[in-house]
Design a protein around this nucleic acid. Sequence first.
DNA 1: TGTATATTTCAATAATTCTTGTATAGTTGA
DNA 2: TCAACTATACAAGAATTATTGAAATATACA
Lengths: 123, 123
Amino acid sequence: MEKQTATQVFESLSSGIRLDIYRLLVKRGLEGMVAGQIASALDLPPNNVSFHLKGMTHAGLVSVEQEGRYQRYRANLPLMLELIAYLTEECCAGHPEQCAEIRADSCCPEAVLPPLPKTEMES
Amino acid sequence: MEKQTATQVFESLSSGIRLDIYRLLVKRGLEGMVAGQIASALDLPPNNVSFHLKGMTHAGLVSVEQEGRYQRYRANLPLMLELIAYLTEECCAGHPEQCAEIRADSCCPEAVLPPLPKTEMES
DNA sequence: TGTATATTTCAATAATTCTTGTATAGTTGA
DNA sequence: TCAACTATACAAGAATTATTGAAATATACA
């Protein structure tokens, strides 16, 4: 996955309205929803919903299909799975045993820290 | 998970710089990185990195621990797992068989659509 | 045809976010 | 204590994004 794709998806989900839309569509699965249904379900002006749907579509987060005079939107779940893979790519590189540890615990544990390298600030 | 938590995390990852920081920290795992290391690794002004790290910390996406005069940052992977669960909550509600279908295919398939309900636009 | 419906587009304003430079606070070690 | 270093806080301008109302496009149906 390209970095721009990832940031676009995150940008899409960074708004409460778009997050609501996405979660609504996830619940609907393959059935999806038409634009007006989404607007009335969330009690928002249709043109505002359309504005957000356009951005989400451009980011690939949702797909749209014309159905007569309706536009049916569906969540693109596989993209989300790709995104997760992108985020955890090379997770704990070189120390795979840490991955299991991190994933199992409730939060980054107050683990014993390795001492700082003698040469400070080398990348 | 609360909606605000989710939007804050997504907002954090919607910037290319913050996404780079997060992925860098994910790779480092429990070791993490100190602020100056992050800045020089990404070739960015330290105060700009500090600005972004503050937001990420506030969103809970990274944790910070003081280490003498250094501030050591680590990615909060468990939060990401919670976030994914939040997103796919009630996925395909009422039609669990669709979930497997969606997850298996490469993208939302051009599935056969159910006909529109006779009463248009009811939520 | 003509009218109603669904959705999008456009323009304008309000609000937020990003980046840079400068200044401040805290830590280290001589 | 003093000087060097790490990191954050603050302020200002540029840039981006959100919301609303009005207008436009396209489909459906009588």
